[in-house]
Computed example of a mutant assay.
Amino acid sequence: MTNTTSATKASSTTSDIAFVAVFTALIIVLGFVAVPVGALGVPILLQNTAIILAALVLGPRRGFFVAALFLLIGFIFPVLAGGRTTYFALSSPTVGYVISYLIAVPVAGFIAARVIGKPKGAKVALFIVAGFLGLAIQYLLGAAGMVLRAGLDVPAAAAAQLPFIPTDAIEMAIMVAIAIGVHTAFPDLLRREAR
Rank of each mutant, 00 (worst) to 15 (best):
1 M>H: 13
1 M>G: 10
11 S>N: 10
11 S>R: 09
15 S>M: 14
15 S>G: 08
16 D>I: 02
21 A>F: 02
26 L>N: 05
28 I>M: 06
30 L>N: 08
31 G>V: 00
32 F>S: 15
33 V>M: 07
35 V>N: 07
35 V>P: 05
37 V>W: 01
38 G>Q: 02
38 G>M: 11
40 L>E: 15
40 L>A: 15
45 L>W: 10
47 Q>W: 03
48 N>A: 12
49 T>F: 02
51 I>A: 15
51 I>T: 14
57 V>Y: 12
58 L>T: 08
59 G>M: 06
60 P>S: 07
65 F>R: 05
66 V>Y: 00
66 V>R: 00
72 L>P: 08
74 G>R: 00
75 F>E: 11
76 I>R: 07
78 P>T: 08
78 P>F: 04
80 L>A: 15
83 G>K: 03
85 T>A: 11
88 F>H: 14
92 S>E: 04
92 S>M: 07
97 Y>D: 07
98 V>S: 11
99 I>S: 00
99 I>E: 01
100 S>K: 01
100 S>L: 05
100 S>E: 04
101 Y>C: 13
102 L>Y: 10
103 I>F: 09
105 V>W: 02
116 I>T: 15
120 K>R: 12
123 K>E: 15
125 A>P: 06
125 A>H: 06
125 A>M: 05
127 F>P: 03
128 I>A: 11
128 I>K: 05
135 L>Y: 03
136 A>I: 12
138 Q>F: 05
140 L>C: 09
140 L>E: 01
141 L>R: 00
142 G>L: 09
145 G>R: 01
145 G>M: 06
146 M>Y: 04
148 L>V: 14
150 A>P: 06
154 V>Y: 10
155 P>E: 12
155 P>V: 01
158 A>F: 14
159 A>S: 08
160 A>E: 14
162 L>K: 01
163 P>V: 03
165 I>S: 11
166 P>Q: 10
168 D>E: 12
169 A>S: 14
172 M>G: 09
172 M>E: 15
173 A>H: 08
173 A>N: 06
175 M>E: 11
176 V>I: 11
176 V>C: 07
181 G>T: 02
182 V>N: 11
184 T>C: 07
184 T>I: 03
187 P>H: 09
189 L>F: 10
190 L>A: 11
191 R>D: 15
192 R>S: 11
194 A>D: 12
195 R>Y: 12
195 R>C: 10
